[in-house]
Design a binder for these strands. Structure first.
Lengths: 250, 250
DNA sequence: CGACACTTTGAAGACGATCAACGCCGGTGG
DNA sequence: CCACCGGCGTTGATCGTCTTCAAAGTGTCG
């Protein structure tokens, strides 16, 4: 793979933060590009763990299946997301506990887990991975908290804010990056509940029309949503959003 | 602190697995013993993160508070549990996002975060910490899944199994290690719901009478609970419990 | 003995899941 | 070109589960 082919989204990955460009590029160049058509399964729950992945483009659904046939979306991975990181760390000789399905045509970089072992020999990268896993754990914790303390509408509102910040969208108006059914599933709710939740957000600072979302007023949103969250004003998403909208107002 | 004072529960900590005894003991000896009375707060959400902790005895409640006054138990830490590990890793210069309160009189080992930095310079310990954080992240993910797919009774049943394995109790009969309100809070449900859930477990393989619990039949429990979980038969708790009860039956 | 936390039970209410129906759209095939 | 289909998205009605409120019994500790 030629060096110039690395998109910025890969070069700026958090796990390479603070690492010299040459070292980073040498590591990345060991990856193999995989092209997934819509509907393809990259790996399935129960498969032996052989590789570690980074999404270059497209949308991947990470989900689990229960014996009684339920499908549960754990996360949606877009460009720049790593996949199977903690699985590979946790059980290098075991099996995936998640399945990964391509929702849109996607491109994925694939690395053998021996690569992950080698890369984490670099103390900076090892620390970056540890931080990334810790952050992920905290996010899951917070979302779990939300399930106990927030209504569906509040959870959706929180998620829309994160979506906006995570993808660098303009808060005053952006398009949903993937379908509403998928978002609903990601949030562990039914599409009907999600649809009704969007209606409730009108008048609470967030306007939604078809796939277009606008975060009208961060303060109204904070009253309606962030007051119910233990992170509240310390939430990096909320802070980032507030700053962004203050700059726009100037 | 004299060496002979280290209880086994500290010596056998997962983060020291594979580390030479002398190295481990040298590290541990830098800890300071803290005695917490029932009701004491070891640290509070928002406090600057200065230390990392290991519980030696007693029960600590780890919880968050929301601006609108709700208290949510994130976890209950008993002997051998580390506290503020990922917080210290994540934001060495930031603030606790959890509070820790002593539920029973407790003894805690305290280490400055500089210690954690030093210790994680040891590659074996660094990897152990990474594995521990990954495992924790996975557990939180699974519990989050349970909130979406399981009834209160099923969640309680799953938790009782984990309690039994985690503490090395006899499945055929053990005492709850802390109060029912605390367990309920830990599971994100109301005490009333918890109480009613226990009633439903009768006839599904788990008997509860006051604080006494007996896991009568793992297969019945598996049908009632584990079939609804994506881990199912791969669940380490379920496997460990099955094994234990098979040995007893012989 | 009285205060208080814990636990259980009953009854009412709120919320989300489920079932059903419909409009919409893009793709397929006759 | 149109008919048909399947997936998506919305809305209404109903149902089950958990929360909430209320009340009472239990136990512990000062």
């Amino acid at each position: 793979m030629p060096k110039k082919a690395f998109p910025d989204i890969i070069k700026n990955l958090k796990i390479f933060r603070g690492v010299a460009d040459e070292v980073r590029d040498a590591f990345i160049s060991e990856g193999v590009l995989v092209y997934c058509k819509r509907g393809d399964n990259l790996f399935r729950q129960g498969d032996p763990i052989k590789d570690f992945y980074i999404v270059c483009s497209g949308v991947m659904q990470l989900f689990t299946e229960t014996p009684d046939g339920r499908e549960l979306t754990v996360d949606v991975a877009t460009a720049g997301r790593t996949m199977a990181k903690s699985e590979a760390i946790l059980n290098p000789l075991r099996r995936h506990y998640l399945s990964a399905k391509s929702i849109a045509d996607s491109v994925v970089l694939k690395f053998p887990i021996s690569w992950l072992k080698k890369v984490s020999g670099n103390p900076i990268i090892a620390m970056n991975i540890l931080v990334a896993v810790s952050q992920y754990a905290h996010m899951v914790e917070i979302e779990s908290e939300h399930k106990s303390t927030m209504t569906a509408a509040q959870q959706v509102g929180c998620f829309l804010q994160r979506l906006c910040v995570m993808h660098g969208f303009d808060p005053m108006g952006f398009e949903l990056p993937y379908s509403k059914v998928l978002i609903a599933s990601r949030l562990g709710m039914e599409p009907e509940t999600f649809s009704r939740a969007l209606a409730k957000l009108r008048g609470n600072g967030i306007e939604v029309c078809d796939n277009w979302v606008a975060i009208k007023c961060v303060d109204t949103v904070a009253d309606y949503i962030c007051d119910k969250c233990s992170m509240s004003v310390d939430c990096p998403t909320h802070q980032s959003l507030s700053e962004k909208m203050k700059v726009q107002a100037d």
